[in-house]
Design a protein around this nucleic acid. Sequence first.
DNA 1: TAAGTGATCTCT
DNA 2: GAGATCACTTAA
Length: 177
Amino acid sequence: MDTARPLPQEFFNQPTLTVARELIGSRLCRNLDGTVLRYRITETEAYDGPDDCASHARSGPTPRSAVMFGPAGIWYVYLCYGIHWLLNVVTGPESYPAAVLIRGTESVSGPGRLTKALAINGNFNHLPVNPESALWIEPGEPVEPARISASARIGVAYAGPDWSQRPYRFHLNGNLP
DNA sequence: TAAGTGATCTCT
DNA sequence: GAGATCACTTAA
């Protein structure tokens, strides 16, 4: 089995919740000046569709969120709270706004710390998810479905109880802070 | 618990 | 153009 082959663009062209769940256990890969770092993804969040009040796409496309309306398999990187870069990958078909936020890996917890550890900034925004971008994802060892938990997303209480309490956050058991 | 930090969005 | 907001972190 060839686990070194990067995930293809079609992988991300699936329902957002499916991608978010299946990314758990896969490997986030970063080429830093020729050195490849690989971190196992342990935590993701789904932002799904034009009606998701917690999503940046909730008010239609804007200069920032337009990439979410594009094809799947594209990085969406934006600055949060003026300090932290947050790393997302666009999912679902074109014109359907959705993305998966990569919140943490086995050695780094917290989306802001993750991008800091991997030297990710806004330059990655709109780049495809493949090795040419120096940032891509490879399949990991299979994870038993029972080891993946779902819970409410973080920091989105403003979206109202319906959307903020949906179990759109996926993580490995025992891998929460 | 609270403040830092700056792009983005919404309303004038 | 001005003000509010924000998918977070760190320092107390």
